[in-house]
Every structure is written in structure tokens, then in C-alpha cells.
Design a protein around this nucleic acid. Structure first.
Length: 262
DNA sequence: ATGGCTTTCTACGAAAGA
């Protein structure tokens, strides 16, 4: 089976490219982030015509996540036990008989310092990641293996960005953020991209501005994790970079992995 | 990079993204 994670930066703006993608690559499961839509304006029926059911946690204008699936899924969980007062749609969970599927959109966290009007976005990011780690840790004690796809908004290694110096102090690269991210690997969950490509220079995001994609000024922010019990089923992973260069692209490319069928 | 792009919203500029 093929699993994909893609920050589409608006599911409505991306609908033509998303449909092309689904027809070309025929993934079984797709984790979407930044759908920027609610259930009122999410294109359920258009995606149904492509053969996919949609399970969404929507929000008007910003954020929003979804899981698309060729087969019916059950037990939709709309949010993890979140930090108090959190109203942002960054988590959705569904399952089938074999697996639990989670789509996440980790907060960006910039600017990293408090200013007078805004409580720190960095503090929110770190709190959110801690709550997510706690939830996944607790979930990993149950029998069913987990698959998590998302935009983690972390530059894990300095070689995961075109110029690490430029991003010193940025909320994507801070040691505290990297430390939260690395807890996922301790659960233990397998990072499907890095398990098969430990040192390869891979990017999943290129800014819309300044011809960043053409100049390959990118960074790696998107990953798919699987429970370690599934690791012998993992036989391929990578990034569909070409979708960043097609008409009306997202600033993220889809990341993928393939698992042996159950 | 103090977002030179893109998207959204009770829209016609501002906020957000990374």
C-alpha cells in the first residue's frame, strides 16, 4: 500500500493538482495539511469522484487537516487531548482494521520571541508538540500500529535546509524544537524517509518567493512515521518533487512511503 | 529576510505561512 503526506496550502485552490496527483499516483492513504476549509466548503464530492473518502478536521481560513482513503475508515477522532484553549485544527485520526492513521500540522512557531501584543508562537509550538508526543506515546501502548503523516515544521539536520546559517534562531531549527521532534523516534516510531535515506539531501518545501524552487532553495519539513513493528514492511519512500513544479503548485511537495500489504 | 508569493476572509488591505 502507498501512503502520502502533503501540505496542500488550501485544498480548494489545489483541487485540480490534487486530482491529477490522485489519478497519477493512486495512493491508498493521503494525509493533507493546511486544507483551509471547513466541512461546508471541503470538496468531498469531487474527491469521491476520484475514488476517495475524506475525513477532515476543518477550520475556516487557516490550518485544517484531513485523511483521504480509498477504503472506508472508522472511529474518527477530531482532536487529541489538546493544550487548554487550543482552537486550531491541526490533528485528525481515523482507523481501519489494521492501522491507526493520524494527520498532523505542527505549528510554525515564528516569530520565536514574545512581543507585547502576541503571546509567543514558539511557546505554543513547543506546548503543542509536547501534547502531541504525550498523546502518541499513550496511543503506542495499544495493540494497533500507527501511521502518522504531517508537516512537522522542523529542520531536523542542518543539511535539511539550503542554508542553515540563515535560519539560526528560527523556530524551525531551534534545539528545543528539534528535541521535541526527536522524541517521536524514541517511542519508537520509524521515520520512513530517513530510515531508507539516512543522509540524502531531500527537500519537501520550497518558498513561493524569489524562485526558490527553481534555485533549489528548499527545506525538509514533511514526514511519514510508522510504528516500529511495521518496519520490515517498509520497502520504499521518497518525495514527489515534480508536483512542486506543475501548474498552480503548493509550496510543499507530497512525501510518500510504500508498505507491503497486510 | 522586516515574507519581492499565494491564499483567505463577512474582503478591496491585512494576516498568515516558513
Amino acid at each position: 500500500m502507498q501512503i502520502v503526506s502533503w501540505n496542500v496550502a488550501s485544498v480548494r485552490a489545489r483541487l485540480p493538482l490534487l486530482k491529477t496527483f490522485l489519478c497519477e499516483e493512486k495512493p491508498d492513504i493521503v494525509f493533507l495539511q493546511e486544507i483551509k476549509a471547513t466541512s461546508e466548503n471541503f470538496p468531498f464530492s469531487e474527491l469521491k469522484k476520484c475514488g476517495y473518502r475524506s475525513y477532515i478536521h476543518g477550520q475556516k481560513g487557516f490550518n485544517g487537516v484531513a485523511v483521504l482513503s480509498k477504503k472506508d475508515l472508522q472511529n474518527q477522532v477530531i482532536d487529541m487531548p489538546a493544550i487548554s484553549g487550543d482552537i486550531q485544527a491541526r490533528f485528525v485520526q481515523v482507523e481501519d482494521d489494521n492501522l491507526i492513521y493520524i494527520s498532523v500540522y505542527v505549528p510554525n512557531g515564528n516569530p520565536p520571541l514574545n512581543d507585547l501584543k502576541d503571546t509567543s508562537r514558539l511557546a505554543y509550538k513547543l506546548e503543542w508538540m509536547q501534547a502531541f508526543n504525550n498523546y502518541v506515546h499513550q496511543l503506542s501502548t495499544c495493540q494497533k500500529p500507527i501511521v502518522i503523516g504531517g508537516d512537522f515544521n522542523v529542520i531536523v539536520h542542518d543539511f535539511d535546509v539550503y542554508d542553515a546559517q540563515l535560519f539560526q534562531g528560527n523556530a524551525l531549527i531551534l534545539p528545543s524544537v528539534r528535541a521535541q521532534f526527536s522524541q517521536l523516534e524514541c517511542m519508537p516510531l520509524i521515520n520512513t524517509l530517513r530510515y531508507l535515506h539516512p543522509t540524502e539531501k531531500l527537500y519537501s518545501f520550497w518558498d513561493f518567493q524569489q524562485g526558490a524552487a527553481q534555485r533549489n532553495m528548499g527545506m525538509l519539513l514533511d514526514y511519514i512515521f510508522i510504528s516500529s513493528i511495521l518496519k520490515d514492511k517498509l520497502y520504499k519512500s521518497g518525495i514527489y518533487k515534480q508536483y512542486r513544479f506543475m501548474e498552480k503548485p503548493s509550496d510543499h511537495a507530497p512525501v510518500y512511503c510504500f508498505l507491503d500489504d497486510f
